[in-house]
Design a protein around this nucleic acid. Structure first.
Length: 280
DNA sequence: TTCCAGGTGCATA
DNA sequence: TATGCACATGGA
């Protein structure tokens, strides 16, 4: 994909592999705001405004190199989509979400965010994380950074209940006492299966949340997170199987190193297009 | 009112 | 190892 670093951000010079609505609304990230003329996206202590232009997008930010990596701009998504289109089941989902890119997100933020996401809906996940940012995150002027582990350590479990985390409050209280940002970074040296086992040891992190952290934080594309929507998909287009571990095994076997990409096209398609309509 | 949402932890067999 | 249940909360 063609893009150019300029003095106030990044110019995306191609709309084929970049659609900001699809990138932000496909469920991989929760901290963003839709505006009249574009989107503002928050990651860690940074932010960017993304505005559509005639032949692409402008990413307005002071941290171009961070967002170059964040938006995974060096990866050729045309190539990935062409490879995945050979699977009949992915033809329509890829057409529907052809501007999706897998974001490379901050590890600690991804850990906390996807613990909150468990058995929860996206609107409420966003609400809880916004409260977390605004009450504990560093004031950056026009917004608040995602809180550090250090700032989260100062709060008791009741605080996390008060911001609406529900029964996940105890997971949050515990998990920040199990790992810090440095340890999470060190884990990146491990191969995916070992790293996955390390993550599952953490409070509030099971197989599905671990896979989301692997995919959206560590950038591991050889995982296929199986949530309620993917389970629905599998039972609709493949065959009825109750066991999600079995579904995960079969899908990672089918899609291999492109599992993460395939999962995201399917998830977005199921959630926003097929939705609850069960007669397709 | 019941069901569901990007599931996990824990007890039980 | 595998199954079943409880767990907060708000929208449909």
């Amino acid at each position: 994909m063609k893009y150019k670093i300029v003095n106030n951000g990044i110019l995306i010079l191609d709309k084929n592999d970049f659609n900001i609505k699809e990138i932000l609304e496909c469920g991989q990230i929760f901290s963003f705001v839709k505006q009249e003329d574009g989107y503002i996206v928050y990651s860690s202590d940074k932010c960017a405004k993304v505005v559509e232009s005639e032949d692409g997008y402008k990413i307005l930010t002071n941290d171009s190199s961070y967002f170059e990596n964040f938006f995974d701009l060096k990866t050729d998504y045309t190539k990935i989509k062409n490879a995945l289109k050979k699977e009949p089941i992915l033809k329509e989902p890829i057409e529907f979400g052809k501007g999706i890119r897998i974001l490379k997100q901050d590890l600690f933020e991804t850990l906390i965010s996807f613990i909150v996401s468990a058995n929860n809906n996206i609107k409420r996940i966003q609400l809880i994380l916004n409260r977390l940012r605004s009450s504990l995150g560093k004031d950056m002027g026009t917004y608040h950074a995602f809180p550090s582990r250090e700032s989260m350590l100062k709060k008791d479990e009741a605080f996390y209940k008060d911001i609406g985390a529900g029964y996940r409050a105890s997971y949050l209280y515990k998990v920040i006492r199990q790992v810090d940002e440095e340890r999470l970074k060190e884990y990146d040296n491990l191969p995916t299966p070992e790293l996955r086992n390390k993550l599952i040891e953490l409070s509030g992190v099971g197989p599905k949340v671990a896979d989301c952290i692997l995919l959206f934080g560590y950038g591991r594309k050889d995982v296929f997170p199986v949530d309620t929507w993917i389970a629905k998909m599998y039972n609709k287009y493949y065959e009825p199987i109750e066991n999600r571990e079995e579904i995960r095994k079969r899908l990672t076997h089918q899609f291999g190193d492109l599992s993460g990409y395939a999962q995201q096209y399917l998830f977005y398609f199921m959630r926003s297009y097929v939705g609850n309509n069960d007669d397709g």
